[in-house]
């Protein structure tokens, strides 16, 4: 392949290796300690700590690979969504309870969490809106 900027560059593979490596370490940690979280979530927390300690350059392989994967996050959820064809009959038989519980639990959760976080934010920063710069001393802190 000669299409990349640096022919023979291993950056792409390096990035994937870091991410899958942290996934494996997360899985091992969860299995050895019996923590009630999925290995990938443990891997995420471990990678966060590692990034905070090592502070890699903005162009490092792990950051580039992560941005690449996250920009197509919706792609990875498609197969599970297509599962609707396999459960249609179950959904149809209990459509009302499923639909009401689905919508109400979502909207109440969304609004309550949004209000709670707004109320608990430091004063003076609460009036900020999405897209506006942070309050003085707020965003930079």
């Amino acid at each position: 392949m000669t299409s990349s900027a640096r022919p023979g560059s291993t950056r792409f593979v390096d990035g994937l290796l870091w991410l899958t490596g942290f996934w494996l370490v997360g899985e091992l940690l969860v299995r050895l300690t019996g923590l009630p979280v999925p290995g990938a979530v443990a891997g995420m927390l471990l990678l966060f700590v590692a990034l905070q300690v090592r502070r890699p350059a903005a162009t490092s392989s792990v950051l580039t690979a992560a941005d690449g994967l996250l920009s197509h996050l919706q792609l990875l959820f498609i197969p599970a969504g297509v599962g609707i064809v396999a459960v249609l009959a179950t959904v149809r038989d209990a459509a009302l309870p499923l639909a009401v519980a689905f919508v109400v639990s979502w909207v109440v959760g969304l609004v309550l969490v949004g209000w709670t976080v707004t109320l608990l934010l430091p004063r003076g920063d609460r009036g900020r809106r999405t897209g506006e710069p942070g309050a003085p001393g707020g965003a930079a802190s």
């Binding site: 994937l16 991410l19 899958t20 942290f22 996934w23 997360g26 999925p38 290995g39 990938a40 979530v41 891997g43 995420m44 927390l45 471990l46 990678l47 966060f48 990034l51 905070q52 792990v62 950051l63 690979a65 992560a66 941005d67 994967l69 996250l70 996050l73 792609l75 990875l76 959820f77 498609i78 197969p79 599970a80 965003a139 930079a140 802190s141």
Partner: peptide
């Protein structure tokens, strides 16, 4: 394709790392 959800979940550490100051 689903397999990639593993590394993608780990990758969520990166935006978090960038906002760690908040």
């Amino acid at each position: 394709v689903v397999f990639l959800l593993g590394p993608a979940t780990v990758a969520l550490a990166v935006p978090l790392h960038r906002q760690a100051a908040h």
